[in-house]
């Protein structure tokens, strides 16, 4: 009789259960009606089964988003866990869609499911990639824009993981400031 090690058949559980959402911009529908839950997973193996099955971000048409959020948190400002929060925002140039977009998004997903931010991972709600003709965006959303210690730790680690040069900065903006901004830019609460 062959003895099979549990390693070969037990999947590797993640700390959290995660949901992947897809948004497609159909102007005949409401914002919420354009948002759909693709799938939920809580193991390393099921994460890859999903990731390998879906289109890369760079193949999506303009106006689409992917969002990965902890199970039970909806990918919108209004959710109870998001409404006092904000995001570390990575804005990409048009050329970066070819060079960096898919790499940055995968790195972002790995940071989330791997709980890269240590104890501060509890502050993470999710991440979003926006495909836009004027420039794509990737962001990690956190729960509380007043939690300076957690936010700056997450920002520093995230910037390093993406390989963003030290001399370039990334900014953290509260969702309330983004929602009420008057111009095209939102003021940064934190910068790393």
């Amino acid at each position: 009789q062959e003895i099979v090690s549990p390693e070969s058949y037990i999947k590797h559980p993640l700390q959290n259960k995660w949901s992947l959402w897809f948004f497609k911009n159909d102007k005949t529908k409401t914002w919420q009606a354009n948002l759909c839950l693709i799938s939920t997973f809580d193991t390393v193996e099921d994460f890859w089964a999903l990731y390998n099955h879906i289109q890369l971000s760079s193949n999506l048409i303009s106006g689409c988003d992917y969002s990965l959020f902890k199970d039970g948190i909806e990918p919108m400002w209004e959710d109870e866990r998001n409404k006092r929060g904000g995001r570390w925002l990575i804005t990409l140039s048009k050329q970066q869609r070819r060079q960096d977009l898919d790499r940055f998004w995968l790195e972002t997903l790995l940071c989330l499911v791997g709980e890269t931010f240590d104890d501060y991972s509890d502050e993470v709600c999710g991440a979003v990639v926006n495909i836009r003709s004027k420039g794509d965006k990737i962001a990690i959303w956190t729960a509380d824009f007043d939690n300076r210690e957690a936010i700056t730790h997450i920002g520093r680690v995230y910037k390093e993981r993406l390989g963003i040069p030290i001399k370039m900065t990334i900014g953290y903006q509260s969702h309330s400031d983004t929602a009420t901004k008057s111009g095209s830019t939102t003021k940064n609460k934190f910068v790393v």
Binding site: S8, Y9, K11, H12, P13, L14, Q15, V44, E45, D46, F47, W48, A49, Y51, N52, E107, L110, V113, G114, E115, T116, D118, D119, S121, R161
Partner: peptide
């Protein structure tokens, strides 16, 4: 403690899912 996985460990599973 948390179930943390580093990037190389996670990447090692990318093409194993189909085999299990």
């Amino acid at each position: 403690g948390k179930r943390q996985y580093n990037r190389d460990f996670l990447l090692g599973f990318q093409f194993m899912a189909a085999c299990t």
